[in-house]
Amino acid sequence: HERALMVNRLQKLTRMLRVHPDPKWKQEQQELIKRLK
């Protein structure tokens, strides 16, 4: 369940980064990718 939330968050971040590349979001995205591996 928590994994699904993280995947959701990651997808949302990816969409937001396409619109507005924010370093903070980029960092969070990298963190999520690490944790999901």
Rank of each mutant, 00 (worst) to 15 (best):
H1W: 14
H1S: 13
H1E: 12
E2V: 08
E2R: 06
E2K: 09
E2G: 05
E2W: 13
E2H: 07
E2L: 13
R3K: 10
R3M: 09
R3W: 12
R3N: 09
R3S: 05
R3I: 15
R3V: 11
R3P: 02
R3T: 08
A4D: 14
A4M: 14
L5M: 14
L5N: 13
L5F: 09
L5D: 10
L5S: 14
M6D: 07
M6K: 03
M6L: 13
V7E: 13
V7N: 05
V7I: 15
V7G: 04
V7H: 09
V7R: 12
N8S: 13
R9W: 12
R9Q: 09
R9F: 11
R9M: 10
L10N: 00
L10T: 01
L10C: 14
L10W: 02
L10V: 03
Q11Y: 09
Q11H: 12
Q11N: 08
Q11I: 15
K12N: 09
K12A: 12
K12D: 11
K12L: 14
K12S: 08
L13M: 01
L13V: 04
L13T: 01
T14A: 11
T14S: 07
T14M: 06
R15T: 04
R15I: 10
R15A: 14
R15V: 07
R15E: 14
M16S: 03
M16H: 02
M16T: 01
M16P: 00
M16Y: 04
M16L: 12
L17E: 02
L17F: 01
L17I: 08
L17G: 01
L17Q: 02
L17K: 01
R18T: 08
R18C: 15
R18M: 12
R18V: 05
V19W: 10
V19K: 13
V19L: 13
V19Q: 09
H20D: 13
H20Q: 09
H20K: 11
H20V: 06
H20L: 08
P21W: 15
P21T: 07
P21N: 13
P21R: 06
P21L: 06
D22E: 05
D22M: 05
D22F: 07
D22G: 03
P23F: 03
P23D: 05
P23C: 04
P23N: 05
K24G: 07
K24I: 11
K24T: 11
W25M: 15
W25P: 01
W25T: 06
W25D: 04
K26Q: 08
K26S: 04
K26C: 08
K26F: 13
K26I: 13
K26V: 10
Q27W: 06
Q27G: 04
Q27I: 10
Q27P: 00
Q27H: 13
E28F: 03
E28L: 05
E28Y: 04
E28V: 04
E28P: 01
E28Q: 03
E28S: 02
E28N: 01
E28D: 02
E28T: 03
Q29I: 15
Q30G: 05
Q30N: 08
Q30M: 11
Q30P: 01
E31Q: 08
E31I: 08
L32A: 00
L32N: 00
L32T: 01
L32C: 00
L32K: 00
I33V: 05
I33K: 04
I33M: 04
K34C: 14
K34F: 07
K34V: 09
K34E: 10
K34L: 09
K34W: 05
R35Q: 10
R35H: 06
R35K: 14
R35M: 11
L36S: 01
L36D: 02
L36G: 00
L36Y: 02
L36M: 04
L36W: 02
L36I: 07
K37V: 07
K37S: 11
K37E: 08
K37C: 15
